[in-house]
Each structure stands twice: as structure tokens, then as C-alpha cells.
Design a protein around this nucleic acid. Structure first.
Length: 949
RNA sequence: AGGACCAUAGCUCAGUUGGUUAGAGCGCCACGUUGACAUCGUGGAGGUCGGCGGUUCAAAUCCGCCUGGUCCUACCA
């Protein structure tokens, strides 16, 4: 083995080997365990969130596989409609100077497929770098043929049950992307805006009660004035009661519109009058429905003003009897330009009463960044009410369990107030909606045009054209758990691996994805999609900031694994920016934070860092310090293994039998191993990866390396030790390490495999040069019978004495290597026996020349003293003591004991405590009091002795 | 406006059903080339557990209020 751990040398090698050996496929035996990967965008690349999530899934998968479960980690990618289309659109524009419309639908989607083939391997290669043990042979894509079929099937069946319908509705329209988007894709941002108060003249000579011939309405969107259908006042408002049913003349347009009474009007806001524009505002749309108002659309799909408005009734049928003429001056103006012109014109007409500056919230499309426009368009919807009921019940009755539990409330709140889901998108990339139209606009929903004809008895020569729209990406990803397993065919995989065991996902897509999967899967399989949902937080930077290109704080997991030069990192963070003016500051911050770039850390260290920080549900602040620390941990494990191999390879480790004698240390470390195995297993079961990683780290570093390896040296290097004793220690060294590697494997797959290959043959769990992998070894099971409390107590005693001597050395400034004479006194017979049993260990680890048992404490020379239980550890200090320093130290120690004693005495002096606290607690306090008092006595004795010098 | 979560050492975080001398890693200080490891070893310093009040024999832990932070939902004509 190399002297230093070199992750890059082992990681790619092992992944290729595992894949070649088909280690990731289900075994076909045992209780099934399955995880469906949240499919990343096919053209995307791995970010920290993926790396984190993949680590958790892989750890669970490897662990369950080792437990003997029939394990499938299903992999695949998502076509990601809008994101992918936009990306290719930009690429085509940059490279060919063409828009997608220049190319046409077919040629453009061909371009996307080309791009998919070209770049689609990127994310999967990165997944391999993370060590993900997914079954590549079953890789799926949401637009592959089988999935397309599943999507069509679901659409047709839902339509046949009247759970999908088409209609003209107000939707969130993205004027840049020219598509509807869902509520979830709208990001509301606070802005400072203006609030214009307009006068709407009353028609027919009417006046208000206070004699005005106009009503005042206020709006943040003057341009929608063109589409007003009414002015509303509150039915309870006495000021306007006489005007309800009368009319106003809509300024600039000249249309007569009614004054209606509706509860939407708030008497306490502004004038109490509100303009109603049902075709351009969601609240007004509701008012329109209640008041039976016409829907007057005044915008094009670009959100520019139409030459003539379009009027519809609430069912979306054109209305002929409405005057749809609009002022020619605004035709073709964009909405913001129209706004300015309208405000100016109102002002000029003397109808602008007031302008206020206010804070308001604007809706932005999360992809385009454009301001979203509520627009009346023809769309397809899923009626969700019926689907939601069983989906809510499944979580209520525990068929699906969220971890942590509090996300269930978030889920319920959303599910109980669900709007119908707009599933059509005016995009070219996605699943084409399986609906056909004839020349008269009749719609036929079927799996194919042929099926549509057959079903509806249509003549063969009737021309049918397919709906131009595609489905929302989440419609198809909602079918992910069963679509990937071959549904609608009843495949064996579907029978075996569905429902999946656990979904690992971020809280940000509970609504987008999790909720919809639950609804769709229950509907079509009658099963829940997964039994548990492990919800994790966002990976943020060290300061708790969201990682984003514009902030310049993005870390690429691959750079953490392989390392990156400073200049390359700066270039990566500042190149190709949307806001190039930030580049300088980002470069400076990056050079400040990583003056030497980023060192390579390896995948295992990165995974371990994620796991150690994986506290359920909370966002994690990625800690570079921990990454270094766990790289060091890998190095520690590496070097400990080198020590073991140096002492075990070519030696008799007891695998072939032979007499074996186990030392106290051997029995102790085996005992500690059992406890660690139990802890790690329990933590895994509870999704507490932080605890699992911590327990393993503690055992490896603080027990196995710090103590056991040191304790093994006196046995292995002592010529006087028996062959049976050496064999026992070698066997223990090797066996414990072998178990540790199995325990570590789900968390650190690469280093554990690399070392295991060398260690397992020595431990007798694998054959020399064999084809086994740690991946498929049994998960270590704690054996209660091997827990040895006596050995633990003895080793604790030994450690106590060694630490006591080290303390003395540090305090007295004695060189660490200087051999010392040590006396033990005031101990029990047990202490004396322990000394005899552990003399060689003590001498070696505490660097002692001699250890003497002193029966008569009076014989003790002047010495630095430490306590181990009742026993005193004396390091004779003839003439070497700095009297003042030692007195000061002792005074401080005595003071500390006094405080502890005082605290307990107060507690024990409290009658209620003694009366009400459990007896065990009281006894414990009494015990502590005695200990502290004993310590204090020794310290005082020592102080008096030194003071007397 | 409603709701969720969080606040523990300089930093990142553990702390199970109330009973610990409140822990870990990193960082810091001192010492150290002992035959696995300086990506290391040994020892150490460092905490009014955000504030106030309550319940209790006993509160970092339970309850209430307050402050600060993160996020979600809704509204903003």
C-alpha cells in the first residue's frame, strides 16, 4: 500500500470493476428494497444538491444490499420540458442565428434529441463519480418509448373518467416563453411599484352621494383598464348603494360598464370602489363568475395590446354583442409601454386623481424571469379533487410516512387547498397531448389517431390534426415509480419493486412532484408510490447562502473530489455571467476563500461530509473544514490498515485454526465493535446518517487507532509473548478491521473496497485473489455475547493510568519520551491485580521505566499525583517541582472540586429533592459527592506536602 | 397576515423519554522526527446552552412571551 491515501487512484478503478461485474443489479433474492432516483434533467450537470441526495440514496442502497435485500436503485433522467427547450433554443440562436420558429417544430425537436444524445451522458458520468450503485441496465428516460406509452395511457384513462378536461381559463402565462406555467413555477417577488387612482365618470348623469360625477378606482396595472367589465362596490357600503346597477363610462375606451355589488370590494381600502378585469386578474375572474360578467381579453400572447378586444362568456364562448373596439393608439404596444401611455392619457383627460408609491408583489416566471401575465387561453386540466382524497388518506393512515414528520403538515395544507392542475404547455419538447381535432374543432382523445377514428366511428378520410401542446413535465414524472418498472404492462419488476421503499427528495419539490406522484400512483396502481419519504434540506455555502452562479459561491462536487487550481476555479465562477459587473468581486472573494485553490479530497471524503451533516430536514451549510477532516479520516483508516497489513500479511492470523489467546485489549476492542455495529445500524434505520458516521469515526479513530493499535504493539513486538497470544492479537486486528470496512462501506464505498480486498483474505472472509466484493458481504451484526464489560472496565482503568501519567508529563514539562518511574498506591486489591495484568501495556504506552505497587502510602516520596478512582498515581519528582506553579495549580483544582461538592451538597440538602427524586438519582449524587471529596482530600494532602517544603 | 423550522465553544454541528462535571470536528495555544499516520501524536484554553417568565425536587431539554434568522402559504383592487 502507498504511504498516503490517494483517492483518485482507487475510485475510478473500483467503479468500473463493480459495473463490469454487474454488482448493482438486484440479486433476485431476499425481501425487496427499492429506491427510484429523482430523475435529474437529462442535459443537466451534477450540483451539490444532487451529490448530497445521491450520497444518501447510495448509502441506503448499499446498506440494504449488504443486509441481503433484493435491492434495486432505479436510475433515469427527465426530459425537463421548459428548461431543455430554452437551453437548446439559446444554443441554436447562438450557433446558427436561428429561432426555433425558423427551424420548425420537427427540425427543432430533432436538435433537442441531438443535444440529448451529445450531452445526456454528462450527468450519468458524474453520478458514477459519486459511486452511485444504480442499476444502469434499467436506465430510463421520461421520453423513451415505454414511458411515452405510459403517459398516453394515463392521459386517455383520466379523460375517459372525466378527470381531464379542456377549457378556456385564466392561467399564468409567460409572455417570453409563450406557454402556460403552473402556480408553482411562479415566483412572487416584492417590488416597489406605483398605485394609480383613476376617476371613472358615471354614466347617465348620475352622481355619488357627495355629489361627484365619477367613481375613483385604484390600480397597479392601468393597462388592464382596457379590459374592464365592471366596477365593484361592497354590497354593505352605504356610500354607493344607490349606484349599484348603474353604469360608468370606461375612460379612453368608451365602453359602458356596470357598477356591481360584490364582497370582493373592500370598504376600507381606497375609495371602496374597485375595477373588475376578469380576463386579466385572478380575483377579478372570480368576481366575474359571481356577477356573470364578460371576459374581455385585451392582450396578445406577447402581452401586447390587441387592435380589438376579444370577449367571451364564462364558458369561453365568443360574445357577439359586446363592443370590442379599443383605441387605435395602443394597438401593438407592449404592456409596460401601454401602461405609461394610458396613465399619461388619463392625466391629460383630468382623470388621474393621485399616484402613490407602494410595495407590491409581482409574479415572475422562474425560468424566463419575465413578469407573468394572467391570460385567458385554451388549456387542459386535471380535476384533482377526486385524486387528492386518497392521496391525503394515504399519509393520514400511515401508508406513507414523511421523515421528518413535520413535512406532513406542509403536504396536508397544500393538498387540502388544491386547484385544478393545468397540464398543457405551449412547448415543442415533451409528451404530445393525445388529442385530435377535426376541421370543426371537435376533440377526440385516444392513444392514436387510428384509435380515435375507430372509437368515434370517424370516416377514414376525415382529416385529424393532433393537439399542438405538450404535457407539463411533472405529469410524466408523476408516473416515475411505476412507469420505470414497465407499467402499463404487469411486469415482474413492477410486482417485485413497487411500491418503492423510500423516496429521497428535497422539500422544495414536495408539491411539484411528491404530491402528484402520490395521486397518480394511487389512481393507476392502487398502491402508494413509496412507503417513506426522507426529506432533506438545501445545500448552502459555508455562510448559509444559497449557492448560485450570480452570487459566485457555487461549488462543483467534482472539484471537491478532484481538486481544482485557483485560476480555473475563478474562471469557472466568473466566466459566462449574466451580470459581468459582479465578476471582479466574485474573483476577489474566491481568491480570499481559496488562496491555493481546492485540494483533491476524493469521493469518499465528500460523501462522508454530506452524511455527517445530514441532520434530518434542515438545510446544511457545507463545511470545507469537515471535508478536510474526513479526508484526513480516510487517511487515518488507510494508515491504520497499513499497520495491520504490515503485521499480519504473511503471518499466522488464526484463519487456519491453531491455539488462540485473546488479550484484555483484544476482548475490549471486539466488545466495542459490537456496540458500534449496533449504533451504526440503529442510526441508519432512523435516517440519522450524522450519527452513523460519527459512531464509526469515533470507533475507528478514538478506539481502534488511538488505543487498540497501540495496545497491540506490546504483544506483537514482545519476543516473550506466546505464539497463541500473537495469533490472537493478529486475528483480532484483522477481523475488527474487516468488520469496520464492511460497516464503512455504504458510506465510503471506495476506500473500504480497496482495503477490504487486502484484509478479507487474512480475516478468512474472502479467498486470496478471489472475486468477492465488500459490496455483497453481510452487514455486520452486533453479537451481544461478545460484549465484555469486565474487559471494558479494565481497559478504562488502564487508559486512566496512562492519561494520568501523560498529564503529569504535560504539567511538569517532562519530555514525552523520558522514561519515568511511577508508583501506585492506596488502590484496592483489584487495582493491584490490574497492574500485574497490564504491566507491559502500561510501560509501553506511558513510556515507563518501572511501575511499583506501594502498600504503605506513608512511604511515598514527594511526587506529582493523579487519581484513578481511589488509587493514586505518583510520579516521584525529587527536587524538580516548581513549587509556586504547583501550588497554584493545586489551588485551582481544589477550587474546582469545592464548587462541585458545593453543588451536590446543596442538592442533597434539599429535602424535596431527597424525598421526590428517584432513589437511583439520589444515590448517584451521593456517589459523586464521595468521589469529589476523595479527590479533594488527595489534592489537599498534596498541597500541604508541597507547601511544607 | 397565517404557519413551519432554527438560535448550544471563534466556525460547522451533536445532545434520545427532563437527572452528564454540556460533547465532537475544525480553528487556537504549548510540547513532540518513539518502527501505521505531521492528512499525525500528547496536553490545554474556550460555553450566562438568544432574552425574560413559568412548570418541576431537578430545565440546553417541557410551556408561555419577547428578540433575531431562514423558509413556506396567502394577500396586496
Amino acid at each position: 500500500m502507498d504511504k498516503t491515501y490517494q483517492p483518485e487512484q482507487i475510485e475510478s478503478r473500483w467503479y468500473e470493476r463493480w459495473e463490469a461485474d454487474n454488482r448493482f443489479a438486484p440479486s433476485g433474492e431476499g425481501e425487496p428494497f427499492s429506491i427510484m432516483i429523482p430523475p435529474p434533467n437529462v442535459t443537466g450537470s451534477l450540483h451539490m444538491g444532487h451529490a448530497f441526495q445521491d450520497t444518501i440514496m447510495d448509502t441506503l442502497t448499499r446498506w440494504r444490499r449488504m443486509q441481503g435485500r433484493n435491492t434495486l436503485w432505479q436510475v433515469g433522467t427527465d426530459h425537463a420540458g421548459i428548461a431543455t427547450q430554452m437551453l437548446v433554443e439559446r444554443k441554436v440562436a447562438a450557433e446558427e442565428g436561428k429561432s426555433r420558429h425558423d427551424l420548425g417544430r420537427e427540425a427543432f425537436t430533432d436538435k433537442i434529441w441531438e443535444w440529448k444524445h451529445e450531452s445526456g451522458g454528462h450527468i450519468t458520468r458524474q453520478l458514477r463519480r459519486m459511486g452511485a450503485s444504480v442499476d444502469w441496465s434499467r436506465e430510463r428516460f421520461t421520453m423513451d418509448d415505454g414511458f411515452y406509452k405510459a403517459v398516453q395511457e394515463v392521459f386517455v384513462r383520466l379523460y375517459e373518467e372525466d378527470l381531464i378536461y379542456r377549457g378556456k381559463r385564466l392561467v399564468n402565462w409567460d409572455p417570453t416563453l409563450h406557454t402556460a406555467i403552473s402556480d408553482l413555477e411562479v415566483e412572487n417577488k416584492d417590488q416597489q411599484g406605483q398605485f394609480w387612482h383613476f376617476r371613472y365618470p358615471l354614466a347617465d348623469g348620475m352622481t355619488t352621494d357627495d355629489g361627484k360625477n365619477y367613481l375613483v378606482v385604484a390600480t397597479t396595472r392601468p393597462e388592464t383598464l382596457l379590459g374592464d367589465s365592471a366596477v365593484a362596490v361592497n354590497p354593505e357600503d352605504p356610500r354607493y348603494a344607490s349606484l349599484v346597477g348603474k353604469f360608468v363610462d370606461l375612460p379612453l375606451v368608451g365602453r359602458r360598464i356596470p357598477v356591481v355589488a360584490d364582497e370582493h370590494a373592500d370598504m376600507d381600502k381606497g375609495s371602496g370602489c374597485v375595477k373588475i378585469t376578469p380576463a386579466h386578474d385572478f380575483n377579478d375572474y372570480e368576481v366575474g363568475k359571481r356577477q356573470d360578467l364578460p371576459l374581455i381579453n385585451v392582450f396578445t400572447k406577447d402581452a401586447a395590446v390587441l387592435a380589438a378586444a376579444e370577449a367571451f362568456d364564462l364558458q369561453g364562448r365568443p360574445l357577439a354583442d359586446i363592443d370590442t373596439s379599443l383605441p387605435a393608439a395602443y394597438a401593438g404596444l407592449g404592456r409596460f409601454e401601454a401602461r405609461e401611455r394610458i396613465v399619461a392619457d388619463m392625466d391629460a383627460a383630468g382623470l388621474l386623481e393621485q399616484v402613490e408609491t407602494v410595495n407590491n408583489t409581482l409574479p415572475f416566471g422562474d425560468r424566463s424571469g419575465d413578469v407573468i401575465e394572467p391570460l385567458l387561453t385554451d388549456q387542459w386540466f386535471v380535476a384533482v379533487e377526486e385524486l387528492a382524497k386518497p392521496a391525503i388518506a394515504a399519509v393520514e393512515n400511515g401508508d406513507i410516512e414523511f421523515v421528518p414528520k413535520n413535512y406532513e403538515n406542509m403536504y396536508f395544507a397544500w393538498m387540502r387547498d388544491l386547484q385544478d392542475w393545468c397540464i398543457s404547455r405551449q412547448l415543442w419538447w415533451g409528451h404530445r397531448i393525445p388529442a385530435w381535432y377535426d376541421a370543426e374543432g371537435n376533440v377526440y382523445v385516444a392513444r392514436t389517431a387510428e384509435e380515435a377514428r375507430a372509437k368515434h366511428d370517424l370516416p377514414a378520410d376525415l382529416e385529424l390534426t393532433q393537439d399542438e401542446d405538450v404535457l407539463d413535465t411533472w405529469f410524466s414524472s408523476g408516473l416515475w415509480t411505476f412507469g420505470t418498472l414497465g407499467w402499463p404492462e404487469q411486469t415482474p419488476e413492477l410486482a417485485t419493486f413497487h411500491p418503492s421503499s423510500v423516496l429521497v427528495t428535497g422539500f422544495d419539490i414536495i408539491f411539484f412532484w411528491v404530491a402528484r406522484m402520490i395521486m397518480m400512483t394511487l389512481k393507476f396502481t392502487g398502491e402508494v408510490p413509496f412507503k417513506q419519504v426522507y426529506v432533506h434540506g438545501l445545500v448552502r455555502d459555508g455562510q448559509g447562502q444559497k449557492m448560485s452562479k450570480s452570487k459566485g459561491n457555487v461549488l462543483d462536487p467534482i472539484d471537491l473530489i478532484d481538486g481544482i487550481e485557483l485560476d480555473a476555479l475563478v474562471e469557472k465562477r466568473t466566466g459566462n455571467m449574466m451580470q459581468p459587473q459582479k465578476a471582479k468581486a466574485i474573483a476577489k472573494a474566491t481568491r480570499g476563500e481559496f488562496p491555493d485553490g481546492i485540494e483533491p479530497h476524493g469521493t469518499d471524503a465528500l460523501r462522508y461530509t454530506f452524511l455527517s451533516q445530514a441532520t434530518t430536514g434542515r438545510d446544511i451549510k457545507f463545511d470545507m473544514g469537515r471535508l478536510d477532516g474526513y479526508r484526513n479520516f480516510c487517511n487515518k483508516l488507510w494508515n491504520a490498515s497499513r499497520y495491520v497489513l504490515m503485521n499480519a500479511e504473511g503471518q499466522d492470523c488464526g484463519a487456519a485454526g491453531g491455539e488462540v489467546e485473546l488479550s484484555l485489549a483484544d476482548r475490549w476492542i471486539v466488545s466495542q465493535l459490537q456496540k458500534t455495529e449496533a449504533q451504526v445500524t440503529k442510526a441508519m434505520e432512523e435516517f440519522r446518517f450524522d450519527h452513523a458516521s460519527q459512531a464509526l469515526y469515533d470507533f475507528v479513530w478514538n478506539e481502534y487507532c488511538d488505543w487498540y493499535l497501540e495496545l497491540s504493539k506490546p504483544v506483537l513486538w514482545d519476543d516473550a509473548a506466546s505464539e497463541a497470544a500473537k495469533r490472537g492479537t493478529r486475528r483480532t486486528l484483522v477481523r475488527v478491521l474487516e468488520a469496520v470496512l464492511r460497516l464503512a462501506h455504504p458510506m465510503m464505498p471506495f476506500i473500504s473496497e480497496e482495503i477490504w480486498q487486502r484484509v478479507a483474505p487474512l480475516a478468512g472472509t474472502a479467498s486470496e485473489g478471489g472475486s468477492e466484493s465488500v459490496m455483497t458481504q453481510p452487514w455486520p451484526l452486533a453479537d451481544e455475547a461478545l460484549i465484555d464489560d469486565d474487559a471494558t472496565r479494565d481497559i478504562e482503568w488502564l487508559k486512566g493510568v496512562i492519561v494520568a501519567v501523560r498529564n503529569v508529563r504535560a504539567e511538569m514539562n517532562i519530555a514525552p519520551g523520558k522514561p519515568l518511574e511511577v508508583l501506585l498506591t492506596k488502590g484496592t486489591a483489584g487495582d493491584s491485580a490490574r497492574l500485574e495484568a497490564n504491566r507491559p501495556f502500561l510501560a509501553k504506552l506511558a513510556k515507563l521505566e518501572s511501575v511499583t505497587w506501594l502498600d504503605d502510602p506513608e512511604q511515598a516520596p514527594l511526587a506529582a499525583t493523579q487519581l484513578v478512582g481511589e488509587m493514586e498515581v505518583l510520579v516521584p519528582m525529587a527536587g524538580l517541582i516548581d513549587k509556586d506553579a504547583e501550588l497554584a495549580r493545586l489551588a485551582k483544582e481544589i477550587d474546582k472540586q469545592d464548587k462541585l461538592i458545593g453543588g451536590i451538597e446543596k442538592k442533597l440538602g434539599n429535602e424535596s429533592f431527597v424525598a421526590k427524586a428517584p432513589e437511583a438519582v439520589v444515590q448517584k449524587e451521593r456517589g459523586k459527592l464521595e468521589d469529589f471529596q476523595a479527590t479533594r482530600r488527595v489534592l489537599v494532602e498534596q498541597r500541604d506536602k508541597i507547601a511544607a517544603l
